[in-house]
């Protein structure tokens, strides 16, 4: 079977004939004309990919997801079938099932790489940064602001998070199994090891959990203890960066980094518009501020009205008690 997290499986898989013996014998196999969706790991990627897949599949084709999400979560996004496999099996899936199309999120990382690799190595048509699908055409965003390219429907679609598609009606999601796909011979670069994320070293756009300090935080030693205790990546408002208390690469906002964290905690940050632009893609924003009428509180999903430093002391005490 194909090794997990092996991007070189694409090149090797094309050299091996697909196994079709199991295809005829198992009743749980997905149909050949399905749309294969790879929804990524985050909720936002699931939403984007599922929307695109249903828009493409219509009512006549089933949507098959290669995903670790629960069937309930996929059911809400109108996915018909789910297979518990890593996306690296896609080349073998393509050669075995020959699906109608494969949809991946344009995440600038693992999935973007996999989609392009698949297209070039298997000589399949591809559309990247897809922002709309309809009438046998796809619209792709370009480097030029406001300009899009229209193309006939390709076999691989990398969908942008801005994609516009109607919401689909929920349906029952069934588990499916794939046939034994193909044997993968050894060769190419070897994966020696993987290194766990180090929140302190993680670049802000890549971080999943960001805690940022603003003018309401005066004790930065306490702030760093708080960030370390939570296992988060530190960030800062422009105020602290300009005063030299935090490095420039930790600045969040228009003139700093744009972040797309799962959870963003703003400690003593009132929320200038430039800062709010930088956190536009965050899924959950928690504001800690004494002023609950500030712009950050309007943006936040949860606002805790209290002094940021007192709050940090209390949370650290809670975490110490839990040890």
């Amino acid at each position: 079977m194909i090794r997990r997290h092996d991007p070189f499986a694409v090149r090797r898989a094309r050299k091996v004939a697909p196994s079709t013996d199991a295809k005829a014998s198992s009743p749980n196999l997905p149909p050949a004309e399905c749309v294969v969706a790879v929804p990524g790991r985050s909720e936002q990627q699931l939403l984007v990919v599922a929307k695109a897949a249903r828009a493409l599949a219509g009512e006549e084709r089933p949507v098959l997801a290669l995903s670790s999400h629960s069937p309930e979560a996929l059911s809400a996004h109108a996915v018909d079938l789910v297979v518990r496999e890593e996306p690296e099996v896609l080349p073998a899936v393509w050669m075995t099932l020959c699906p109608y199309a494969i949809i991946l999120p344009e995440d600038g990382g693992r999935y973007s790489d996999l989609g392009r690799r698949l297209a070039v190595d298997l000589e399949l048509s591809i559309a990247v940064h897809v922002v709309a699908i309809g009438a046998g055409l796809v619209w792709s965003a370009t480097n030029l602001p406001g300009k899009e390219v229209v193309a006939p429907l390709p076999r691989i679609l990398l969908v942008d998070r801005r994609i516009s598609a109607p919401a689909a009606t929920p349906r029952v999601t069934r588990e499916a199994v794939l046939p034994p796909l193909c044997n993968v011979p050894e060769g190419g670069p070897r994966l020696l090891r993987t290194i766990e994320p180090e929140p302190e070293r993680t670049a802000l756009p890549n971080a999943r959990f960001v805690v940022a300090a603003g003018a309401g935080v005066r004790d930065l030693g306490l702030f760093h203890r708080f960030v370390n205790a939570l296992g988060a990546t530190p960030g800062a408002s422009r105020n602290l960066v300009d005063s030299g208390q935090m490095p420039r690469d930790r600045q969040i906002g228009t003139s700093g980094e744009r972040i797309a964290a799962d959870v963003y905690v703003a400690l003593g940050i009132s929320g200038a518009v430039q800062h709010l632009e930088g956190i536009d893609d965050c899924q959950c924003v928690i504001a800690v501020n004494t002023d609950s009428s500030c712009p950050m509180a309007a943006r936040a999903d949860l606002t805790l009205r209290c002094d940021a430093e007192t709050f940090m002391h209390r949370v650290l005490a809670h975490l110490d008690r839990r040890k």
């Binding site: 959990f209 939570l230 959870v263 905690v265 959950c284 924003v285 928690i286 800690v288 609950s292 509180a297 309007a298 943006r299 936040a300 999903d301 949860l302 606002t303 805790l304 009205r305 209290c306 002094d307 007192t310 709050f311 002391h313 209390r314 949370v315 005490a317 809670h318 975490l319």
Partner: peptide
């Protein structure tokens, strides 16, 4: 969004639950 006021002990608890 929700706005919660209260003593910092309770707010710390709410925060940790949310995270």
């Amino acid at each position: 969004g929700r706005i919660i006021e209260g003593n910092p002990e309770e707010l710390a608890d709410v925060f940790l639950q949310e995270v």
